[in-house]
């Protein structure tokens, strides 16, 4: 059996004395869309931070393309082809929209599907406002910049941490509307979502997390609603 593109094996993570992840196993195959759902504090963002090298983990706990990458720092993870849209967007206030996008390609341009022009084609409004400071845009537009920025490195895996948080439904729909094109570029996508409905719609497979553990996994079609409900809120909630 060949190894998946990206996988975690018994991944644990700590914030000081507080343990946030307890042996998490997930895998992402080439071109797949994965949704990770769970309530606030379930450990979803911590998982993203551990994969991208923002939180230290054991070397073998994260493997990508057959390589143990658990101890690598963030820039080296990006260079290998994993990029992230961080929670809260985190655009650089000193950089214009265009510069925010360009810095995404600072260290890696990959196979070159995603370019400044391609991002502007997908989200034309960004072209109009390319010279504005990134932080002067509306929330939805900022989110598109953050996604575009992460795509500029032409990643093999795109991690999206809570991209719909705090946005209007119509904007969320627009953001998820761009996912087929991202998939078309060959990238696997991992979305972290609190919105179960949205996650189910885009995902090939779903992981549900609670209090640092994976409590459920499977294809959306195979998962009964009450199983998800139990995995999300705890059995007797």
């Amino acid at each position: 059996m060949t190894e998946p593109l990206l996988a975690t094996h018994g991944l644990t993570a700590h914030y000081g004395d507080f343990q946030a992840l307890f042996g998490v196993d997930i895998k992402v195959e080439e071109g797949e869309t994965i949704a990770i759902i769970g309530a606030n504090g379930a450990g979803k963002s911590t998982l993203m931070r551990a994969i991208t090298g923002l939180l230290p983990s054991a070397s073998e706990a994260v493997r990508f393309r057959g390589e143990a990458i658990g101890t690598l720092p963030a820039p080296e993870i990006l260079e290998r082809g994993i990029s992230m849209v961080p929670e809260g967007r985190k655009l650089f206030p000193s950089l214009s929209v265009e510069e925010n996008l360009l810095i995404g390609a600072h260290a890696r341009e990959g196979n070159g599907y995603w370019t400044l022009e391609r991002v502007f084609e997908v989200v034309p409004v960004l072209r109009e406002r390319r010279h504005h400071p990134g932080t002067a845009l509306s929330g939805g537009q900022q989110q598109m910049v953050a996604i575009g920025r992460a795509l500029m490195s032409n990643p093999d895996v795109l991690l999206c941490d809570e991209v719909s948080l705090g946005l209007a439904p119509v904007v969320i729909k627009e953001i998820y509307g761009s996912f087929p094109q991202i998939k078309g570029s060959g990238a696997a996508i991992v979305v972290v979502e609190q919105d179960i409905g949205q996650a189910m719609k885009v995902a090939d497979r779903v992981y549900c997390m609670m209090e640092g553990w994976v409590t459920l996994e499977g294809c959306p079609a195979d998962l009964p609603r009450d199983a998800i409900h139990n995995a999300y809120f705890g059995v007797n909630a």
């Binding site: 991208t52 090298g53 923002l54 720092p73 963030a74 820039p75 990006l78 260079e79 990029s83 992230m84 961080p86 985190k90 650089f92 206030p93 000193s94 950089l95 510069e99 360009l102 810095i103 995404g104 600072h106 260290a107 890696r108 920025r149 490195s153």
Partner: peptide, 23 residues
């Protein structure tokens, strides 16, 4: 310049700059 862009990004937020491959 690209270097200047990286300077400003790092100055804004070194952690997020790291996520962009900036050391």
């Amino acid at each position: 310049t690209a270097l200047g862009r990286a300077f400003r990004a790092t100055s804004d937020d070194a952690v997020t700059a790291g996520l962009m491959g900036v050391r």
